[in-house]
């Protein structure tokens, strides 16, 4: 019963994501308007037949911008997350494998420093150093974001290392590298992916928060986070400006959450039982 629910959530998540990605990546075909075309006569229009989600302060169609902006947001956040996951998994796995070694201790200290680091200050300094652009912003994010994946991988690998399967492999004389890639990392992959699906929403919002502080993507190319931050100036008279990006962010986060929950339900045998 429960595993059926799990695959149900998984299926729903994948379908929703496919739908969203489809709408975003066929944007130029779905909505052939120019996302940059300004129109002084049509500023801040309410949603209607002509502009389904209304227009922004420059008279640009919000639906078109949301769809086109999704490409930037999804690709860049996806890439940033992927790099954070890769860095985190690699370093975390090594630390877990050589638990208690110098490398492990140094890595944990670095993680401590990064956790202790005021992220906003860091992002601002990066922006001031290299200029505000989405790329620099994401760079700042990755520098801090890999930490949570490293911590998780490290603890999972450490657990798995002491399992009988690994002991057996070691007795058979398998090299550390092989053990790491054959036995340990695959076990860590599941939980890390689950964590990653949850983190994507946070990532999109972190970009919105940084755009709010003036460190976002560069005009005029649309991006969900900076669209939200720009729309803030009109939140009383024209809140529909927020609607487009907010809706797509919510749906994206929902899709990833469903995928994450579905994945976890599949992996986690305990959750099958419940009391009522």
């Amino acid at each position: 019963m429960n595993s059926r629910r799990a695959s149900c959530a998984l299926g729903f998540g994948v379908a929703l994501l496919a739908l969203l990605a489809g709408s975003v990546f066929t944007a130029s075909w779905l909505s052939p308007d120019d996302p940059l075309a300004m129109n002084v006569g049509a500023r801040l229009q309410q949603p209607g037949m002509e502009h389904w989600l209304g227009t922004d302060r420059f008279g640009r169609d919000i639906l078109t911008r949301t769809l086109h902006g999704g490409q930037t947001t999804l690709i860049s956040c996806g890439l940033a997350l992927l790099s954070a996951v890769l860095i985190g998994m690699l370093l975390g796995a090594l630390a877990g494998m050589f638990h208690g070694s110098v490398f492990d201790i140094v890595l944990m200290r670095i993680i401590d420093v990064l956790l202790a680091f005021p992220f906003m200050v860091f992002a601002m300094v990066i922006a001031a150093l290299f200029g505000t652009s989405l790329f620099h912003l994401l760079f700042a994010v990755v520098v801090v974001w890999w930490v949570s994946f490293a911590r998780l991988t490290r603890s999972l690998v450490f657990q798995a290392k002491n399992s009988t399967a690994v002991d057996a492999a070691r007795v058979l004389g398998t090299s550390n590298t092989v053990i790491l890639f054959r036995e340990l990392l695959p076990q860590a992959l599941g939980p890390v992916l689950v964590l990653a699906t949850f983190e994507l929403g946070n990532l999109i919002l972190a970009i919105a928060a940084l755009s709010f502080l003036g460190l976002g993507s560069q005009p005029p190319s649309p991006e969900w986070g900076s669209m939200l931050a720009d729309g803030r100036a009109h939140f009383m008279t024209a809140p529909h400006v927020l609607l487009g990006p907010a809706l797509w962010i919510i749906l994206t986060v929902l899709a990833f959450n469903c995928i994450g929950e579905g994945l976890r339900d599949r992996m986690d045998p305990y959750e099958k039982a419940r009391i009522g």
Binding site: N2, R5, G201, N202, I204, L205, A208, A209, F212, L228, A229, R232, F235, L242, A246, I249, I250, T252, V253, L254, N257, E261, E271, R274, I275, G276
Partner: peptide, 28 residues
């Protein structure tokens, strides 16, 4: 405790919603 009921589902949806709206929007 109520996992799988409509309550659980509503809570999950609300969590997603709350986690998808930036703090400055809610604050304002």
């Amino acid at each position: 405790v109520h996992s799988g009921t409509w309550f659980d589902t509503v809570v999950r949806l609300l969590c997603v919603g709350l986690a998808s709206v930036p703090g400055f929007v809610i604050g304002l």
